[in-house]
C-alpha cells in the first residue's frame, strides 16, 4: 500500500491556544480514515492543515506525495473537500451549483449531472440550494466534492443534523465512494458512524492524537465489562448471583430493576451458560463496549461547550 497522507509533528497555535500540538498521522491509499474528538480537540484545524487551507507553525504534511501548502494547483484537482452544508452560491439551483463547481476543474455539465444522479438528486436538480432539506444539501455538498473524480476525499461531519434514514442512506454512498478505491478522511461526532464506516480512526483531544487503530481493536484494548441482561422474573437476583459465582464468573455488578436482570462482567461465557441451563434467556441482550466508551475513556466525561 502507498501512503495518501503523511503528517509529521504538525503544530498550530492561535494566540494562547495550542490548537494542534504535535500531530503525526498516516493514511494509506484506499483507506477510510476517521478523525474523532470532542469540540475544540483540534480536529478541524488538523483537517484544514491537511487540506492545505492553513499553514502549520511546525511540521510537515504530504498529500499524494506533494506539499499542500502553499496552495498547490497540481494537487487541488486530485483532492475533493466537502464542507459542512451550505457552502453554495446564492440563488442557484442544485444543478447549476454542481455544474459551476465542476467547471472550476474543467469538468463538463454531463459529468456534473451524472454525479447529481449518483447522489440521488436528479429529481431535485431544479430546487434552489437554500430551499433544500439538510439531507439534500449534504448530498449536494458531497456530489460537488466528487464531481472531478478526486483520489482523496475529505468529509467534515457529513451526517450532522440528518435523520436516521438520511444518515444510513448517506453511509451507503460513502461506503461506495471508498469501495471505488478513493481514500476517504472523515470527521464526525457520531461514533457509531465511525465504527461502521472507518477502517481506522484516531481519537484526538487537546491538539494531540491519543489513540489510533481499527475501531474494533480500540474497543478490545479498552478491556471493558460486558453487560448481559434478561427479562426480570425468570431468575431471582440472589439466586442468580450464587449460580454465577458457582460457575466461576467474576461479577462486577448485578442488579434487578424489575424490568431487567443485568450483570456486568469481563467474562460473559459462564453467565450465558448458567442462564441457558436455567432456561432464563427470554429478552437476552449482550452489550459490549463501543467506540463511544473508548472515546469517553480517552477524552473524559466532562462536558465541554
Amino acid at each position: 500500500m502507498t501512503t495518501a497522507i503523511s503528517a509529521e509533528g504538525i503544530r498550530k497555535r492561535y494566540g494562547d491556544v495550542q490548537a494542534v500540538d504535535g500531530v503525526s498521522l498516516t493514511v494509506e491509499t484506499g483507506e477510510f480514515y476517521g478523525l474523532l474528538g470532542p469540540n475544540g480537540a483540534g480536529k478541524t484545524t488538523t483537517l484544514e492543515i491537511l487540506e492545505g487551507i492553513r499553514e502549520p507553525d511546525e511540521g510537515r504534511v504530504e498529500l499524494l506525495g506533494m506539499a499542500p501548502w502553499p496552495r498547490n494547483k497540481a494537487l487541488l484537482p486530485r483532492i475533493g473537500v466537502q464542507f459542512q452544508a451550505s457552502a453554495f452560491f446564492d440563488k442557484l439551483t442544485a444543478r447549476e451549483t454542481i455544474r459551476t463547481f465542476a467547471s472550476f476543474y474543467g469538468v463538463g455539465p454531463k459529468r456534473a449531472d451524472a454525479m447529481l444522479e449518483r447522489v440521488g438528486l436528479t429529481d431535485s436538480a431544479g430546487i434552489l440550494t437554500d430551499k433544500m432539506s439538510g439531507g439534500q444539501a449534504q448530498r449536494l455538498s458531497i456530489a460537488c466534492a466528487l464531481a472531478h473524480d478526486p483520489e482523496l476525499v475529505f468529509l467534515d461531519e457529513p451526517t450532522t443534523g440528518l435523520d436516521p434514514q438520511a444518515r444510513r442512506n448517506l453511509w451507503d454512498l460513502l461506503k461506495d465512494i471508498n469501495a471505488e478505491g478513493r481514500t476517504v478522511v472523515l470527521t464526525t461526532h457520531y461514533l457509531d458512524e465511525a465504527e461502521i464506516l472507518c477502517d481506522r480512526v484516531s481519537v484526538m483531544d487537546h491538539g494531540k492524537v491519543l489513540r489510533t487503530g481499527a475501531p474494533a481493536a480500540l474497543v478490545r484494548d479498552l478491556d471493558d465489562t460486558v453487560r448481559v441482561s434478561v427479562e426480570s422474573g425468570q431468575l431471582g437476583a440472589e439466586a442468580a448471583r450464587e449460580l454465577f459465582t458457582a460457575a466461576g464468573a467474576e461479577i462486577a455488578n448485578l442488579e434487578d430493576n424489575g424490568v431487567s436482570l443485568s450483570v456486568s462482567t469481563r467474562a460473559p461465557g459462564p453467565i450465558l451458560t448458567v442462564l441457558a441451563d436455567q432456561g432464563a434467556l427470554r429478552g437476552l441482550e449482550v452489550r459490549g463496549a463501543t467506540l463511544e466508551d473508548v472515546f469517553l475513556h480517552l477524552t473524559g466525561r466532562e462536558y465541554r461547550a
Binding site: 487551507i53 484537482p77 457552502a87
Partner: peptide
Amino acid sequence: VNWRKKRVLRRLRLAPV
C-alpha cells in the same frame, strides 16, 4: 461577505481556480 460567510471563498481556494 456572502462568499466568505458561506465558505464559498474557501471552496474556490481549494479548487484549481
